[in-house]
Amino acid sequence: MSDPTRFIPVPTPETAHFWEGARAGELRLQRCADCRKAYFPPRAFCPECGSREVRVERASGRARLYSYVINHLPAPGFTAPYAIAVVELEEGPRMMSNILDCPQTPEALVLDMPLEVTFERLSDEISLPQFRPAKGRAA
């Protein structure tokens, strides 16, 4: 069931592949065929070199906890306190995430801890990529 209080992103033509992937349980990045850099968020060209020769690829789903805050302000669809984080993917790009399946405390949320992708279903159309402690290493 979708939570009517959650903010549901709306894909654009340039980001549709990303959200289709998330719905299928895949984290999709784009990689430039010219300069070889992987990048995020999605767009139809490489923000590193401007090339339009870009391909969609499946990311490993492995990441590390790069930075975060533990938000105590009220937010629709969330129960404070909860972490708002930035994770760094194994492929290089960073993305925002919450950290699921983990106590929302500074003690449990240790910078650089290994994480793995999971998906949170928000609606029939949208599943949100999220991260949780990598299996076997959870706090």
């Binding site: 894909p11 968020p41 302000l73 937010a75 708002i84």
Partner: peptide
Amino acid sequence: PALFDQQFEQPYGVTAPPNRFTLPV
């Protein structure tokens, strides 16, 4: 919700500068 920044940050419960501007610290 189709805007670039709102698609990729807003769904994670960022609501205001106190929980967004502080993220890199």
